[in-house]
């Protein structure tokens, strides 16, 4: 099953592109370190979201050219960034007042597991090692909308969308939309609601790699990545 999925699933850039289509003009957005950061590259033309980073910058832009880095100007991933006009600096308590006070419109994070009640596990595998949480627990409990980008299954082919998380939780009942490598799934009323799926997979095959019931209401749309600026 896993090998067949590899041929039809979206790559990380395509998942990021799909998530970017839902970011509205003027939205205040926090993108998690790593894969979710790519969403910024696919901002829809004509929309100007404002990106927030935990270490105290609003309205930052892409990385500078190599050699142009200023290491006082970094993002939460400790990578060098640039500023857009209208940027602002602030200290850490203000930065997290923006998060915890419910001022952020969207937070987009990665995931180990997402449960059908919206619980998210993304900070610790629970198998020992060194725990590191960063700002994830703040973001998921307080942003107006919390979305997740993820492969639909683990490297071993196990479902990441599950009935109940078995890994340590980052937040409870917090995720409302999942952009996976195979589908767009909403979470409401304790259930997964399938909104879109890649055309190469049947409903039954998608259900087979999903760890809890996929409900539907109305049409399930084709998840197609195309158009100007879309990644291949």
């Amino acid at each position: 099953m896993t090998n067949a999925l590899d041929d039809i699933k979206l790559n990380n850039d395509q998942i990021a592109w799909r998530a970017a289509q839902d970011i509205e003009d003027g939205a205040y957005v926090n993108l998690g370190i790593g894969f979710p950061e790519r969403v910024a590259q696919y901002t829809v033309k004509g929309r100007t979201p404002v990106f927030h980073t935990e270490n105290g910058v609003l309205n930052f832009g892409p990385a500078p050219a190599e050699g142009e880095e200023d290491w006082d100007l970094i993002n939460a991933g400790k990578k060098a960034i640039t500023l857009k006009s209208g940027a602002a600096f602030f200290h850490h308590a203000d930065s997290f007042a923006m998060v915890r006070g419910g001022h952020l419109d969207v937070a987009i994070l990665g995931a180990f597991q997402i449960a059908q009640n919206g619980d998210l596990a993304n900070w610790s595998t629970g198998k020992g090692g060194i725990p590191a949480v960063g700002g994830a627990m703040d973001l998921v409990q307080s942003a107006k909308r919390v979305a997740v980008l993820t492969d639909h299954v683990t490297k071993h082919g196990d479902p990441k969308l599950v009935e109940r998380c078995t890994m340590p939780l980052t937040g409870v009942g917090c995720v409302t939309r999942i952009y996976s490598s195979l589908a767009v799934v909403d979470i409401a009323d304790g259930h997964f609601w399938l909104r879109e799926k890649v055309p190469g997979i049947s409903f039954d095959d998608l259900q087979a790699v999903t760890g809890a019931e996929l409900k539907t209401e109305g049409d399930v749309l084709d998840l197609i990545v195309s158009g100007e600026g879309a990644p291949v």
Binding site: H92, R100, G135, Q141
Partner: peptide, 23 residues
Amino acid sequence: PQGTLAERIRAAGAGIPAFYTAT
């Protein structure tokens, strides 16, 4: 958690011994 760390520090500076957070 990073926001709790920042707020615990801010609270100390402002003389607030404890606070509640959803985080």
